[in-house]
């Protein structure tokens, strides 16, 4: 075992040992180290403090730090596992792991449920879905009459809200995504399979004695 933790942790608060992170996630040690190359570049893009703030996250997503986006904000909140207003390297790896092609299907369903449960009540409520639909329409410059939005919501809740109590619980969501598997497409990033070839420079910065694949 090398001195990766002791060196990197000085510059990167909350930095965790790549070997431990690999054991807790769908990534190999080499993939964790390759992700560190990506993390270093994102976390130094606005303030070079070794942490990713919301502005840096938005800059990495949109190449535009000023672009406010409901969905990017929600993803940031979920990645900010320790609720510190910033994403540290451990948060980054553990959160991205859910998007790995090999991550458990149940983890993807859980994450997507949390994503759409904007206020964290344990239910996806109609008002939340309406808020997200309106945000999407604004983002894409599409105009839909309020009646049309209500028709879409009626159809969605007729299919997903099996007990018709006006909100989607976890078990209804599990059934709904089973019937509509395309809804989980956003939960898998094929890029994560090739992360070591996308960021090959990790080899030069590796501080573990042996690269475990």
């Amino acid at each position: 075992m090398g001195c990766f933790h002791s060196t990197a942790s000085k510059q990167f608060p909350g930095h965790e040992d790549p070997v431990i992170l690999a054991s807790q996630t769908a990534f190999s040690v080499s993939e964790v180290e390759a992700l560190f190359e990506l993390y270093k570049s994102i976390s130094s893009s606005v303030i070079d403090d070794g942490l990713i703030n919301k502005e840096e996250f938005q800059l990495a997503l949109f190449k535009n730090r000023k672009k406010e986006n409901l969905f990017a904000n929600r993803i940031f909140e979920l990645f900010d596992v320790k609720k510190k207003g910033v994403i540290d390297f451990g948060d980054f790896v553990k959160s991205l792991s859910v998007f790995h092609p090999n991550a458990p299907h149940e983890d993807k369903i859980d994450f997507s449920f949390k994503l759409y449960d904007l206020d964290g009540t344990g239910f996806i409520e109609r008002q939340e879905v309406k808020q997200m639909l309106i945000a999407l329409l604004c983002e894409s410059g599409m105009k839909l009459a309020d009646e049309t939005v209500e028709i879409i919501l009626d159809k969605t809740f007729l299919e997903a809200d099996v007990n018709q109590d006006g909100k989607i619980d976890k078990s209804e969501w599990q059934n709904f995504v089973r019937q509509n598997p395309s809804l989980l497409k956003i939960m898998t990033l094929p890029y994560l399979r090739d992360i070591t070839t996308t960021f090959p420079s990790f080899v030069f910065h590796s501080e573990v004695d042996e690269i475990v694949t």
Binding site: N69, L96, V129, T156
Partner: peptide
């Protein structure tokens, strides 16, 4: 023809803010 109404989540999942692949573009 009868218009096909997508469900809300299909529409929402097209948001750019949910497309994390852009994180990997250098």
């Amino acid at each position: 023809a009868t218009p096909v109404i997508m469900n809300a989540f299909e529409l929402i999942s097209t948001s750019q803010g949910l497309n994390l692949s852009s994180l990997f573009e250098k």
